[in-house]
Write a protein that binds this DNA or RNA. Structure first.
Lengths: 347, 347
DNA sequence: CCTTGACATGACATCGGTGTCATGACATCA
DNA sequence: TGATGTCATGACACCGATGTCATGTCAAGG
């Protein structure tokens, strides 16, 4: 591959002049510039990033570590990649700031994180982002403290700056919307109980009920996932049947995510119920491939992953610029997406 | 950040000895090694990739350009990111080969490709992969011919090595399976007509019919998308109603993808038809978030994107190693995923 | 006892750019 | 007319690692 010296020789000037043409700093005679540019074109010159990095203080690189790309290997969650919207948001903000993004994937093995982080440090990244596939607590990635690090969709015990979805407010908002639409018997079929999101959303659900003066009925809350197991079709069916068998059955069922809601559509219909005429359904995530395509389209709560990525990147940039008075935890709200799967009850 | 000289001074040895400890080449006294390692740990030394690249012939980097991450910005395709499985497959193979993957995203704008390619070349990547979001023809990315380039999920007129899904064989295999299950009236609701996949799959559909001696009935083929428009709910409904109104209606409807099939579920049920008892349904893509979660689970054809990525990476590695007798076009087959949405008809 | 070779280590040049400083040719100004 | 400033360009050192070659020490072999 051609070097700046080759170009210089070809053009009959010094390497430094070629450098000036490349970077547009010092003055260069218009004629000389043309000769140099012709030489570069002829030799197919591309400048070496390695060499210029030797002198530069800043690399212009940001590293992102994620399990998102390969999460789907995990058999307990064979499904979506919506968490990649986080990467998308990060990418957009960083590109605008002129940074180049390096992405590495854990390939599902958490123990590969240190090695990946190290590779990034060898490339002298200016900052690091760790993206989790769902809202959870993680072990703190061991990174020298002088390199800014931001966690997206997760948090650690060490207090590393974290950007996470506001699951509590999300489910509260949805529940309040349902109440405003006239619903009083609101069922909730949860994700796995040990998940952070489950705890927070359940809290939001209860907060909304309490705020409206509606007594919480434990019989209306059921588990759609069993700990340690993959999504269990039978469990969702059982949960739904139990809800339908209640003396005062729910008028609406909220599911822990859109996939479960999709499954719910099929199960409810096989029980002879029309959606939303006989029973209303809501999901969570705004997994648009499902929510918008289902018939009828699904009312759900947007998991604002793209925005989450944008916020994470913006905070990282701020930290790179030296700001230190940034919040340790940032909640990203998720708006309710109202569609036709919920019927408005006339009071 | 500490350099190899800092470590050398701290340990009281020459930089070269530190280098030897780092790389484990030349012999180093066990005691000396310990002292050096202690110094490295104390200073938090991380070697500079830029500096070592100066001397190295090989960068160990591979660049991947994709619109996959941001494709969803495109309002006409608001849905999935299953094409990211390609990235996943690439990543897995490259990681095994000890290469580091750099990913750049077009952010939806095709004109950003040259700039991204250039950035990669500045990093002296050993090879490049271009990933498209769906099977299509693209304008040839202008890349110096000495850098190996492989196209994944797309092809160009210049004959750049391309890895693409075998859409024809996929739909043919599905159709043959349906015929084997006793179906004779097989409908096909297509994606947009100008898509490469649509043409190939339609061909596979006809090949299968011809192979079984079944006359093709043009009335059984309908368009589910209109050119230039997003997925049009009304169009799918009209297509289905037209099929159901035929004198000899189909016993099974194949949809152009799983999302359309999901929509089909809702529409068919709203017409009072049970799946698969009254009518069978098949999709395409094996978009598992949908296919496995639908009730009943959807028979479909796997778009072996992960494998496609693996093949692309493997071919790129071979080209990097200097092999040149590799095929210009490689078809990746997609197996039929048989689930409960298709009823076996007793003859 | 001297030669030979393995071991352990260091001096130095080099990779490809860029920052600093120097130089020569003119133009401008007092 | 001489002093000063600007333009255009080049010489040289330097960034941080590593390849090459040289050097010194010590043990084995003749």
């Amino acid at each position: 591959m051609a070097t700046i010296y080759d170009v210089a020789k070809q053009a009959g000037v010094s390497p430094k002049t070629v450098s000036r043409v490349l970077n547009g700093d010092g003055p260069v005679n218009a004629e000389t510039r043309q000769v140099v540019e012709a030489a570069m074109a002829e030799l197919g010159y591309v400048r070496s990033n390695a060499a210029r990095m030797m002198r530069a203080t800043r690399s212009g690189l940001v590293g992102l570590v994620t399990g998102a790309i390969s999460t789907s290997i995990d058999p307990t969650r064979p499904t979506g990649l919506p968490d990649l919207f986080i990467v998308q948001g990060v990418q957009a903000v960083l590109a605008k700031a002129g940074k180049t993004l390096m992405i590495a994937d854990t390939a599902g093995r958490q123990d590969s994180v240190p090695g990946l982080m190290r590779t990034f440090l060898e490339h002298r990244v200016e900052g690091l982002i760790y993206v989790a596939d769902h809202h959870k607590e993680i072990a703190s990635p061991g990174v020298p403290s002088q390199v800014p690090l931001v966690l997206a969709n997760c948090f650690d015990a060490a207090g590393t700056p974290a950007i996470i979805p506001d699951d509590r407010a999300g489910q509260q908002g949805l529940t309040e919307s349902l109440i405003a639409a006239g619903h009083r018997r609101i069922a909730y079929v949860t994700l796995m109980g040990e998940m952070v999101a489950t705890r927070l959303r359940l809290q939001g659900y209860h907060d909304a009920l309490a705020g409206a003066g509606i007594a919480a009925d434990p019989a209306l809350v059921a588990a759609g996932y069993r700990e340690g197991y993959a999504q269990d079709g039978a469990l969702v069916e059982n949960a739904i049947d139990a809800l339908l068998a209640l003396d005062r059955p729910p008028t609406v069922i909220c599911f822990g995510n859109d996939e479960m809601a999709m499954r719910g559509y099929g199960i409810l219909r096989s029980r002879g119920l029309a959606i939303p005429d006989d029973i209303s359904v809501a999901g969570y995530d705004d997994y648009r491939a499902i929510a918008e395509t289902l018939f009828p389209p699904l009312t759900t709560v947007e998991l604002a992953y793209r925005q989450l990525g944008e916020v994470a990147a913006a905070q990282l940039l701020a930290r790179i610029e030296g700001q230190s008075d940034l919040p340790q935890q940032t909640l990203v709200p998720g708006p309710v997406r109202w569609r036709q799967s919920v019927r408005r009850l006339t009071a």
